[in-house]
Design a protein around this nucleic acid. Structure first.
Lengths: 236, 236
DNA sequence: CGAGGAATTGACGGTCATCAAGGTCGGTGG
DNA sequence: CCACCGACCTTGATGACCGTCAATTCCTCG
């Protein structure tokens, strides 16, 4: 049927929460959901608004951000394909969700989705495990924000991105140079790391001058000396 | 029976995860659990160790901390009575859990506890909701760590503590002065806020000089002008 | 080719970390 | 009782790191 077809060609069918459902259950869930494309820069959810939707990210990268009344922003999480979006069991969204690249997602109204969670224990359990993982990640990032220097933060960040973007430019040898495109501008990197755009830029050129990375142009980065980069994750 | 008696006198019986269980279910869970007292300063779980236990905090305050290889520490969470301790579904603990005050807790071996979660959907759902709340809190703290000044951080912290310790010293008028004891040393406050002990101390005296707080001695703090303190939560 | 956003680079200053020196308080033992 | 001790806190002096302001330069796209 058309309704399951939409899932049959889903790029994250087996990695997203829905991976815990069989085809029949999936068809039912599909009655509730919609696919949607969003353009780079578009905001899906505003902090403070009613928490209306939940969903899965199919492609692209989203940012989760918090900000102060006077406009300072902190990116508190990045979402990649197969990640879950939204906040069940809360009436108000606490964070703003914005597309960093063009993206596609599959979403559901929150209330019916909560019901679906209750009806499908496996899916709820998977969500619990993912929420724990997100919590661990957030806490690890708290250590970075509170206690690391600009250089350490950037080294952390680049290695993290290399891990996640790896598919696009992986080389034969695990320690050989690898190149990938950052989905973030310098300003957004600054918002992830709790720095300013200028500091990010300066640390980038410093790493380039040290021969640890290269900046071929555009958003591309190549990590030439992973060992050295890892060393700067915790240097004095 | 003796086994349910242990819960009958539980200070957090209706606020902890177990609140979702009826007496019969509780009796079964109790077969697995043990109460334990820990002294101030004692560490229950070490980051990197096998994740063996889960449990509930009955009394006292615990810290959840991460640290770098060279000894810098960041407190990534504080646990209060009725809070859940531990990390189900992970083989290794990522964070160190230490008692900030003498404390009492009720814990279970992790594996059987995971089984109990599966057997009691209500409890699992409650845990999911609490994990979401913890995630929201962690993310809010990321904004603080990454983007706020020392003064703003301390104002945030004091208001947060006032909210949590409120029971001990609440005054008649909501905006009137209130006094309470901090369960943290200056050094630990610094580890929560991503500052140094000296900076915390200096900001404290600055707030005192401004007549916003008073420091009657020991760990006590009194908030004399809550309005002003709230204003410094986001000042220029 | 020109326009506009993004990135780089430089100069300068503020905030906060670091190093150092007392000071306070509670507990312990002579 | 009081001196001593250790842990915690306060305060001061100094400077590094990183934020701010400002001027180019680089890229992309119309």
């Amino acid at each position: 049927m058309a309704l399951t077809d939409i899932c049959a060609d889903c790029a994250v069918r087996d990695r997203a929460l829905c991976g815990s459902l069989n085809d029949e259950e999936l068809a039912a869930l599909n009655m509730l959901g919609r696919r949607q494309k969003v353009a780079r820069g578009e905001t899906l959810i505003w902090a403070g608004d009613e928490s209306i939707i939940c969903g899965n990210l199919l492609s692209g990268v989203l940012k989760l951000a918090a900000s102060t009344a006077d406009g300072r922003e902190q990116i508190v999480g990045l979402l990649y394909p197969a990640d879950f979006i939204g906040r069940p069991y809360a009436d108000v969204a606490d964070f703003t969700v914005t597309a960093l690249t063009d993206a596609e997602l599959c979403f559901f109204p929150r209330k019916p989705f909560e019901q679906a969670l209750e009806d499908h224990i496996q899916m709820e359990r998977l969500l619990l495990q993912r929420t724990f993982a997100a919590l661990d990640e957030a806490r690890a990032r708290m250590l970075m924000l509170g206690r690391k220097s600009a250089e350490e933060k950037l080294a952390d960040f680049l290695l993290d991105m290399a891990r996640r973007m790896g598919s696009s430019g992986c080389r034969a040898t695990p320690d050989g140079p690898m190149t990938f495109d950052l989905p973030l501008t310098r300003g957004q990197i600054a918002d992830v790391l709790g720095l300013t755009i200028e500091t990010v830029s300066r640390q980038m050129t410093k790493l380039k001058a040290a021969g640890i990375i290269a900046l071929p142009g555009g958003r591309a980065v190549t990590i030439s000396d992973r060992q050295a980069l890892e060393a700067r994750t915790e240097a004095a």
